[in-house]
Design a protein around this nucleic acid. Structure first.
Length: 401
DNA sequence: AGGTATTCACATGAAACTATTCTCTGAGTTAGG
DNA sequence: TAACTCAGAGAATAGTTTCATGTGAATACCTGT
């Protein structure tokens, strides 16, 4: 008990590195966006007619993750709606992220969410889809207005449910009497539009804009700018920001992840009682991010996934590579122990494919000739991560042994 | 030896089914006038 | 008679099962030399 008290007291006494940690969180919007002036001007140009209550061209924004697409679009829209509000213009900006689970990842939910933005709650189930469309139409057409609709991560949406929704949305304008709607799609996937219905494609990408990745210099400036505000002066050792930028530029060019990396390095340094943030903390942060990602993706999976994963981990104790059939064996025994229903091998095959996608296991389809075709599976994690994962899964599956 | 056919053990696809969650509707019930 | 309750019908969705079809190369089986 005394120990705990001491801990808290020390914790309080210890000075924090951060002046304002929030600045390094992904949700923070800086008041100035570096190296994106050109793109933002472009966006503004394209969307400007909305202020004259004319429908702007539909816009399509491409670019990899963390290249500032979302933030730039939101920034422009934000200032537009400010101007619109001042001049009393009928402009409405709606931002929807299509990837959010249980919010906008199906046709029904997307339209329901849109209606919600217009102040009309729609039950999460129970209504037919076209009914929801009708409600939405009516809402839109209540009075004359221009609607700028941003669909972020639009590729995720079409990957899941096809492009019918988009077709409907592009067609809305012909049905509306008073209002006009302008679509702004944001996609991480550069070749996303390729496999889209040609009609949708042409009407959706009347204008296109491509965001290229930041290079190391850009990232460095961005990081420095944020770090200045977030950290206390002199807490970051020389070279840390440079290293962080260089690493991120080489690996992914993703500004968000670079900032995350810096923040976590700071947290690690703080916790370890070091006086400054050093390069070694960066390396540690890198590892932590990697393993956290994997662990949380495993823990957030349903029970059946976890059972399959646990079964694979069990086999991995004995040998390095193994096959679908073996996992199924172990898995079904496991289920019998835990009183979980045993799923078919067909299903397990899919589960394994998904675990592969998540990067938790390595699976390669091989042919063993006369002895059939199967996945050649191995664990792609470090040993201590495997052990940690096993403990967590045991807890989560409530295994006693 | 060289060529062809088989065969295994799954992979992959499509469709149908199930359980859950939620709304809407209308019949039956209740309480107050 | 108005307000309330409650069961049943109908929807959307995620997770599965069922049925059907595909597949790559090690082996088995020929065939002609």
């Amino acid at each position: 008990m005394a120990q705990i008290n001491n801990f808290f007291e020390n914790y309080l006494k210890q000075e924090s590195f951060f002046v304002n940690r929030e600045i390094l969180l992904p949700s923070y919007v800086p008041e100035e966006i570096l190296y994106r002036e050109e793109q933002m001007r472009e966006i503004a140009n394209i969307l400007a007619p909305a202020l004259r209550v004319e429908k702007p061209s539909n816009l399509f924004v491409y670019g990899k993750t963390g290249t500032g697409k979302t933030i730039s679009v939101r920034y422009v829209l934000h200032s537009m709606s400010k101007v619109a509000a001042q001049n009393n213009l009928p402009l409405k900006c709606v931002y929807i992220n299509c990837k959010l689970k249980r919010v906008a990842d199906t046709e029904y939910r997307l339209i329901a969410q849109l209606s919600k933005e217009f102040g009309q709650e729609i039950p999460s189930t129970g209504l037919p889809t076209d009914e929801v469309y009708n409600i939405f139409y009516k809402l839109l057409d209540q009075h004359k207005q221009i609607v700028l609709l941003v669909l972020d991560e639009i590729d995720q949406l079409t990957k899941k449910i096809g492009d019918e929704v988009l077709y409907n949305l592009t067609r809305i304008n012909t049905e509306l009497q008073k209002s006009q709607i302008c679509l702004i799609g944001i996609s991480n996937n550069l070749v996303f539009a390729e496999n889209l219905d040609p009609r949708v494609k042409s009407s959706l990408s009347e204008e296109e804009l491509i965001f290229s990745a930041y290079n190391a210099t850009h990232l460095q400036e961005i990081l420095r700018k944020r770090a200045e505000k977030a950290f206390k002066e002199g807490t970051i050792q020389e070279g840390v920001i440079e290293k962080c930028a260089a690493y991120s530029a080489r690996e992914h060019g993703d500004a968000r992840r670079a900032i995350d990396l810096l923040r976590i390095a700071g947290e690690i340094a703080e916790r370890s009682g070091s006086s400054t943030v050093k390069i070694s903390h960066l390396d540690e942060a890198e590892k932590k991010i990697e393993s956290d990602k994997i662990i949380s993706s495993a823990i957030n999976q349903p029970k059946q996934f976890q059972s399959v994963l646990y079964a694979t981990l069990l086999i991995a104790l004995q040998k390095k590579n193994f096959f679908t059939g073996e996992i199924y064996e172990v898995y079904s025994n496991l289920c019998r122990q835990t009183k979980l229903n045993v799923l078919t091998q067909r299903r397990i095959s899919d589960v394994l494919a998904e675990l592969d996608m998540l990067g938790i296991i390595n699976a390669k389809i091989i042919s063993k000739g006369r002895y059939g075709r199967t996945r050649d599976i191995s664990i792609s994690l470090e040993e201590n991560l495997v052990i940690k994962m096993r403990e967590l899964l045991e807890k989560s599956l409530q295994l006693s042994s």
